[in-house]
Design a protein around this nucleic acid. Structure first.
Lengths: 224, 224
DNA sequence: ATTGCTGTTTACAGTTTTGTAAACTAGAAT
DNA sequence: ATTCTAGTTTACAAAACTGTAAACAGCAAT
């Protein structure tokens, strides 16, 4: 390892982060070893510490980069959906649903989140939900903010789940590994999101003071 | 630590597993240290190796126990929903949605899954989806297996996401930490699941001819 | 009580890992 | 060409971690 390929600090950091990210997907943050990252980046491990201060610094930088990339892509995708003409809405929504899956970023992001890294989710969520509401109102003027919030929550949770164990669950449910059947599911979901109007989402939710949520065996409010 | 409290092997294993599980929730499988488990279980760490063979053996046993408990509870909850009278259906479905959250088991299970432990999801998923379909048909005879599959997939993914970053996402979306607003979301979701009939779920999914489905044709340039 | 089994502990070894220190060198500036 | 800066490497240290070996001790059976 006598070769000393000098690079700029930015480039060095990038190669280190790339190597770390590719390893992170397999072993997780707690399993990330500086020696492994150094080997993949083709350098000696103290070089990593020189650029990031410590192992923790590397993880923090990694978390930041992944978070920024993911939120940028997501907001872009929703933005595109907003500008899309009606006949392309389904495709646009599908694209939004596909955004987090790119590569293994989502998996890495969730893993970092599990490990306690300050995630970039919270800071950008307001923007995302605002854009989503704007989108919903563009084809359903009666759409309420509450229901948008709930839909965004449901979809976000599902996307997190998808990133983690989507492949296994889909396989267990009989969805083939073919891209086709997965595209079907995404299309199904996208169409539902576009079809459901606020009336269908309201159901009997108006009751809010029953408050017997933990012991639901008693009477169930269903009137309105 | 001169006190030597003798126990049966089963009881010893249980105390070790309990300690390991409570730690696992915070640090993840890769971060689980035998010394930490031993300290929490109030014993010396070689004792753990004596009972489980190795650190890996402990993780495997832990994964098995968590998986078995979770799937048992889930199938039980769906079973109850099947037997519930119509006016208690919403409550029953809410209970199904709450099943995985009990304690921190879900978080631990997902983390183990991320780390490559053979999960118990796949083997029991068939049973779960069969029960779910039975349940759907009990109030909507026209319910198709395809849509049940898709709904189960959506809910399962959302539950996985809920377990991982539900708290943070909900907070970011403005859902209060109060149990009340969370109960609202669950009730909203449960009612949607019970309300949606197969007609609404079918939408225009039959279109396989459309060119916009699988290849979203980037007619829209990347810009924002 | 004595014996034997086994759960439990102490002491220790080998390996791995993060981080430090100093030497080395590629490339830019002079 | 010479000098200087800074990225890079080698060598090393301290700590942590898993697993081993042997001794210890509670408990049941004889």
């Amino acid at each position: 390892m006598a070769r000393k390929t000098h690079r700029s600090p930015e480039e060095a950091k990038k190669t280190i982060l790339d190597a770390a990210e590719s390893i992170l997907v397999d072993v997780g943050p707690a399993g990330l070893r500086l020696s492994a990252v150094a080997k993949k980046a083709k350098m000696a491990h103290p070089n990593i510490i020189h650029h990031f201060g410590s192992r923790e610094g590397l993880l923090q930088a990694l978390s930041n980069r992944i978070g920024e990339r993911a939120t940028l892509r997501t907001t872009n995708a929703i933005d595109q959906a907003l500008k899309a003409p009606p006949q392309e809405r389904v495709a646009a929504v599908i694209k939004v649903l596909e955004t987090p899956y790119q590569g293994d970023e989502g998996r890495a992001a969730v893993w970092l989140h599990l490990s306690g890294a300050k995630s970039a989710i919270r800071s950008n969520m307001e923007h995302i939900v605002a854009l989503s509401h704007q989108f919903r109102q563009s084809f359903d003027p009666t759409a309420s903010k509450d229901n948008t919030n709930r839909l965004v929550l449901l979809i976000t949770l599902a996307l997190v789940g998808e990133v983690i164990s989507g492949d296994e669950i889909k396989e267990a449910l009989g969805f083939g590994d073919s891209d086709e059947s997965r595209a079907h599911f995404k299309q199904w979901l996208a169409e539902i999101l576009l079809t459901l109007n606020d009336n269908q989402l309201k159901t009997s939710l108006s009751i809010n003071k029953s408050s017997k949520t933990t012991t639901p065996t008693s009477s169930i409010p269903q009137e309105s």
